[in-house]
């Protein structure tokens, strides 16, 4: 498979920007082109980077106070009168606390509500486990009709925001707090429901989303030195998954490793495994948080300690290749 072109030197001089900035900037751009777009915030306006939208389009920004359940249903009501609302708060709140509102009113009702799910993953850091969304992918992707997207960097997040407004139905966009490498360019193609080869290889496929895409690319580079040719798929759309690309890659390489900044149970890796066990049952290893809560610490410490690094991905690749040999 042909790899899409990325930023030229992602190893030594890569720029780092938080994906939440992509959410905020994407909304400002979208607000300029689509007058129906409204943004709701629950007292986390600057943190979610939607202060830029608020300052640019004050009449289309709705402050709800610290009331996420109300916010989700306000968005539902706004969508019912023709608005395209983007609910913006931390993932633990908009997908957790307001899950029933998201499931029953928004998704069951087939409503056009977008959920900007910030501070995804353990890299939230010192705020600790209460604020680290590690179950959000699992609990949103099981809702019928939901689209769930986890962009890998700043530019992809901008494109996801743009694309979400074009979908008639609920969309969850998951992004993070920390600065992460910018590996795509404004011109890198993006399509909802499509996975892309970010690096070609023939022995194993690493399928990743979010910040783990960069770690997977690093892992593939490390493995190259050991004579292992690893393909890296960027799979931002967790649901609906790009079944064809995932299955083709699994069949061509014969082994799969998934990588996500999320619990290994029920999340992205599970979604890939569901597809593979039906269409291409190759050996699979999943990299992610192993059924434990996070804790306070620096993002780097936490990523390292919870096994969300290139080294961990490379280790999983070695494991899965052992299985492939059997």
């Amino acid at each position: 498979m042909t790899a899409v072109s990325l930023v030229e030197n992602i190893w030594t001089e890569v720029e780092k920007i938080p994906t939440r900035f992509g959410y905020g900037d994407g909304l400002v751009e979208l607000g300029g082109t689509n007058p129906n777009v409204v943004v709701l915030g629950a007292d986390l306006t600057s943190s979610l980077r939607v202060d830029r939208f608020r300052d640019t389009f004050p009449e289309r920004f709705i402050q709800t106070g610290i009331a996420e359940q109300d916010m989700m249903n306000l968005a539902a009501g706004l969508s019912l009168v023709g608005k395209i609302p983007f609910v913006s708060t931390y993932g633990v709140f908009c997908t957790g606390r307001a899950w029933d509102q998201l499931r029953t009113t928004v998704a069951y009702g087939g409503l056009n509500v977008k959920v900007g799910s910030g501070h995804g993953g353990i890299s939230v850091g010192p705020d600790g486990a209460t604020h680290q969304a590690l179950e959000d992918i699992a609990i949103t992707r099981t809702i019928p009709g939901m689209t769930v997207i986890v962009p890998c960097d700043y530019h992809e997040t901008v494109k996801v925001v743009r694309a979400a407004a074009e979908i008639d139905g609920p969309v969850v966009i998951r992004f993070g707090r920390e600065k992460v490498p910018v590996i795509t360019t404004p011109d890198t193609p993006f399509e909802v429901g499509k996975a892309q080869v970010f690096r070609d290889g023939s022995d194993v496929t690493i399928i990743a989303c979010g910040v783990m895409v960069y770690e997977s690319l690093k892992a593939a580079r490390m493995l190259e030195d050991e004579g292992i040719s690893a393909r890296v798929l960027n799979c931002p759309t967790v649901k609906p998954m790009d079944i064809m690309t995932v299955v083709d890659s699994a069949q061509e390489t014969g082994a799969v490793v998934t990588a996500e900044e999320h619990q290994v149970m029920g999340g992205f890796g599970s979604a890939v495994a569901e597809v593979l066990c039906r269409h291409a049952p190759v050996p699979v290893r999943t990299v992610g948080v192993q059924d434990v809560f996070g804790q306070s610490g620096s993002p780097e410490e936490l990523m390292e300690s919870y096994g969300l690094t290139a080294q961990a991905v490379a280790g999983a690749v070695r494991d899965v290749l052992e299985m492939k040999k059997r």
Binding site: Q69, D70, M72, N73, L74, G77, L78, T105
Partner: peptide, 23 residues
Amino acid sequence: ASTGSLGQGLSIASGMALGFKMD
């Protein structure tokens, strides 16, 4: 609206009312 999980309707109605006001 699809309702049945109690407590949600007034927020939905508020969202609609707010949307009408905005327009």
